[in-house]
Design a protein around this nucleic acid. Structure first.
Lengths: 229, 229
DNA sequence: ACACGGACGAGAGCAGTGCTCTTGCTATGG
DNA sequence: CCATAGCAAGAGCACTGCTCTCGTCCGTGT
């Protein structure tokens, strides 16, 4: 924060950043499972125990990487959307979807850290949730603009889902019709199903030309939430 | 295979099964990351090196568990479908979806093994693919029956996806229209997106009453592939 | 009937891991 | 100016996957 810190504090933030950088490098290269505190320390020319001055455990280091990855993903999605922000909601939607997919393809291990198997005894700290919700908020914002322009035709909902949908709407987007919010949440999960299958190799031998396939699926996803043109 | 084997061979298959059972127990209890060969050996009263007579590595043991898990999931889906096999395709579809979800909820760690982060240097051996495709084949069969009855109205497809769709159709279901196959594959991935988000806790604090939510999403998935009544 | 080869279990050991504790050193704030 | 706090280093503990060796015992072929 304040640049007018003592040399000690400055060194601390620098070393903390260096540790995260090296950890991120190893994460990108080998995956979270093979990320080793000792290897990080070795690469930085220090001894493993010294690293515990900066991160109290391996899981804490991983958590820091998770937050950074969520931010990186959110930033990628937001900058991509910003460039087509004046286009129609459908185009904005598919742009965001493709940006998320592109980020996942270029950061497969980070993606796995965010949306793959969770770490055994791990529960997301509060700092995570804000960073984690950026993509979702972006999709909601697109639907909100469409709703304001009157181009959002939310699909019908069965009666037994209505209370839950209104509850979700109150939490996530009070200005949107509950049916739209329910459809948005479902589309959100389905989007990461498509991306996860591609990143994790489930499409191997099944889908060959995955980019047009994904583009079409993202389009249908948008139509599923009622985004028209 | 043949029951008329020597005592030695019989003991081998028995011990192999016991190892897998204990490993499965530990997998279900703690997750794949914490599955330890030494702990398995300890629980079975043998020494860790003896276990290598039966599985050449930890990854091979995990692979065996993966195949079993795929079979367990496939069997659960198939038996659920069998009980509503005479109903309409829509009902059959949602039944299969809900059976897959139920299996995932009761076997979260096995689910993570199948559809979560893949093991670092792991590529699925040929023995896996057959077991892995059972759920997909079930969904295809439902669409096939609907197509035969004339109740399958496949959605339109952009021109650039047509060659890929016909290629997928030729591989997966030559008797179905390519648009239907493309929609099926997308729905397949999206289904596991919904389930994965629920199993991995991504819906925590977002979706509360997840069963009706999922039921509705599965229904819309079916409509997305063109299943009518 | 017997001898030999192969399967087997046990144990020691290697290289690696996360994490803790103690020991000095050094920079910072009162 | 000095006590205190932060810091790096090293040793060490309890694990892990995996390898190698060494007796032993079973099953098969001669």
């Amino acid at each position: 924060m304040s640049t007018a810190q003592g040399a000690r504090a400055r060194a601390r933030t620098e070393i903390t950043a260096a540790i995260k950088d090296e950890a991120r490098r190893q994460l990108a290269a080998e995956g979270a499972a093979k990320l080793s505190l000792r290897a990080v320390a070795r690469a930085l020319g220090m001894v493993s125990s010294a690293l515990y001055r900066y991160f109290p455990s391996r899981d804490e280091l991983l958590t820091a990487l998770i937050v950074d990855a969520y931010d990186s993903l959110g930033a990628a999605a937001e900058t991509a959307e910003k460039q087509v922000h004046d286009a129609g909601p459908l185009h904005r939607w598919t742009t965001v979807c493709e940006a998320v997919r592109a980020w996942a393809m270029t950061h497969p291990h980070e993606y796995a850290l965010l949306y793959g198997t969770p770490v055994p005894g791990y529960t997301a700290p509060q700092t995570t949730v804000q960073a984690a919700s950026r993509v979702g908020l972006l999709l909601i914002a697109i639907a909100r603009d469409a709703h304001r322009d009157g181009t959002l035709s939310a699909p019908a909902l069965p009666a037994d889902l209505h209370p839950e949908a209104t509850r979700m709407a109150a939490d996530l987007a009070p200005d949107l019709p509950p049916e739209a919010v329910a459809a948005l949440v479902a589309a959100w999960a389905q989007l990461f199903g498509l991306i996860g299958f591609e990143v994790f190799g489930q499409f191997h031998g099944v889908v060959e030309h995955r980019e047009p396939f994904f583009r079409q699926a993202a389009l249908r996803l948008a139509q599923g939430v009622g985004l028209a043109c």
